[in-house]
Simulated assay, not measured.
Amino acid sequence: MVLSVIATAFILVLPVELPDKTLFASLVLATRFAPLPVFVGVGTAFGVQVAIAVTAGSLLSLLPEGLVSGVVAVLFLVGAVLLWRSATEGPEDAGEAADARERTSFLRAAAISFGVLFAAEWGDLSQLATAGLAARLQEPVSVFVGAWAALLVVSGLAVFLGKKLADRLPIALIRRVAAGLFLVFAVVAIVETVRTLA
């Protein structure tokens, strides 16, 4: 494992997920069930999603280098535009929170949490970023560890700190910082594409 790659994946994925539906879905699940099974279910769903994204990115890296860096640049540019455009919107709809936590078994609460987050993460910006990093950096295990750690931090904050966190997050600022990070990675990928094709 490469520590700098872990840090890069962590730093890129964390701000993307903070204002995301994932945070608010985890928050709602934690109002309905006990926090620990929600965290276990959500964390497992994230692990599977990150593994899928890293695998897709690793397969992408088998293509010619110029094509890979061009695709990665497009992924990051699209992510930057989407994040920048969403900066002025409010938090993504989390649905109605239950008034009281349901009395549900640990396994059932974890399974429901897994299902909700697994379905919600398809095509998410963090998944695109993870695939792009895996393709670009060719360190799949390090990208997996960094991205999954960032997702676990976000879900842990949502599940264990709850509503206090959601009310205090500067959503617009976080989305703009994330858009800036995506833009930097897009520029680096564009430079690599031009250098490869030249």
Rank of each mutant, 00 (worst) to 15 (best):
G79D: 03
L62N: 11
A98Y: 14
G132D: 02
D20F: 00
F39M: 09
K21N: 15
P19K: 02
L117P: 06
A186W: 00
A51G: 11
A134Q: 11
A30W: 13
L173Y: 03
D124C: 12
V5Y: 10
D124W: 02
A166M: 11
V28Q: 07
S4I: 13
V153S: 01
I190T: 15
L125Q: 03
A172S: 14
G47T: 10
L83M: 05
L83V: 06
A53S: 09
A7D: 13
A80C: 04
V50T: 05
F118L: 01
V2F: 11
W148I: 06
E92S: 07
K163R: 15
F185H: 04
T193K: 04
L128R: 08
F118S: 15
V2C: 02
V78Q: 07
W122H: 13
T196V: 10
L161F: 11
G41C: 00
A150N: 14
G156D: 02
V42I: 03
L60G: 06
A150H: 15
E192R: 00
A131C: 03
A186V: 05
A189P: 09
T44I: 11
V177Q: 13
G66D: 15
A98Q: 15
T130Y: 10
R32E: 14
P19A: 12
S126R: 07
G41F: 03
L161G: 08
A98V: 09
E139K: 07
V48I: 14
A135T: 01
V116M: 06
Q49H: 09
T193D: 03
T130D: 01
I190S: 07
L137I: 02
A9P: 06
A186S: 10
K21S: 03
I11Q: 03
G95Y: 05
G95S: 11
L157V: 14
S155Q: 12
G70Y: 03
P64W: 07
V50D: 00
L12D: 08
L181G: 15
V5L: 02
T130P: 11
S61Q: 06
P91I: 13
F10V: 02
L165P: 13
A9C: 09
F114V: 06
L77C: 09
E92M: 07
R85M: 13
D124Q: 08
V141N: 04
R176I: 05
S58C: 08
S155M: 10
A119F: 14
A178Q: 08
A97P: 06
R168T: 14
E192Q: 07
A134G: 01
G57V: 05
L137T: 03
A110G: 07
S86N: 04
L23Y: 15
L23D: 13
L151T: 03
T22M: 07
L125F: 11
I174E: 01
S61H: 12
F118V: 02
